[in-house]
């Protein structure tokens, strides 16, 4: 066997070794990537959102807008108070509600309700909304995000579980006019 052959055989073995590591690497990479993408893939199958109760209808007098809170359906033990989410409930009439996310449609800061002037105001960049959630002024491009709701056995149920953001298809579907379940 010539020296040249010897080198090429060892080179070939080295290349085979690199290839072998590459194959093992792919085997490892697939579960790692799936692990990393789990917030997007695994849990999405079941969906983040579910119906949950905001309490009895009597808590929400007709013609008023009140802050309600709920525990997010998907939480871990160590989430603490971050698992508690607030929303604005406006009772238009006996059976008609509007449930707004507190998150401003501009960049998500918590909007405050001013019953005297019937406006929601955002403390961050000065967005303002009318009582029906439509945009009044400021940088937001749209009205407040709205949750879907239904009334069951005197309880107000909303479909919630995910923080609404401007890019979300769900958020855009529910925005605008009041939706009835």
């Amino acid at each position: 066997m010539s020296a040249e052959n010897g080198i090429s055989r060892r080179t070939a073995l080295m290349k085979l070794g690199v290839f072998f590591n590459g194959v093992v690497g792919v085997f490892l990479a697939v579960p790692i990537v799936r692990y990393l993408l789990s917030p997007v893939t695994r849990e999405k199958k079941f969906g983040y959102e579910s119906w949950l109760s905001l309490g009895g209808l009597e808590q929400f007098p007709t013609g008023q807008t009140r802050l309600a809170t709920y525990r997010n359906p998907l939480v871990n033990d160590w989430d603490g108070e971050t698992g508690n989410i607030a929303c604005w409930v406006r009772r238009v009439d006996d059976q008609t509600f509007q449930i707004f996310a507190v998150n401003c449609a501009h960049l998500g800061c918590p909007v405050r309700w001013f019953p005297q002037s019937n406006l929601f105001m955002c403390p961050c960049h000065g967005g303002a909304y009318y009582q029906d959630g439509s945009r009044a002024s400021g940088p937001p491009e749209r009205g407040l995000f709205q949750y879907r709701y239904q009334i069951e056995n005197g309880q107000l149920l909303i479909k919630a579980g995910e923080m609404p953001t401007p890019g979300q298809p769900v958020a855009n579907k529910a925005g605008g006019k009041p939706t009835c379940a």
Binding site: L36, L37, P39, V40, E43, K44, Y48, E49, N72, L74, V75, N76, W78, D79, G80, T82, G83, I85, G161, E162, M163, T165, G167, Q168, P169
Partner: peptide, 16 residues
């Protein structure tokens, strides 16, 4: 966009 949000937050909301 929505996937990026879930990836950034590690879930549907800002939490643990």
């Amino acid at each position: 966009g929505p996937w990026t949000v879930n990836l950034m937050l590690g879930g549907p909301i800002i939490a643990g």
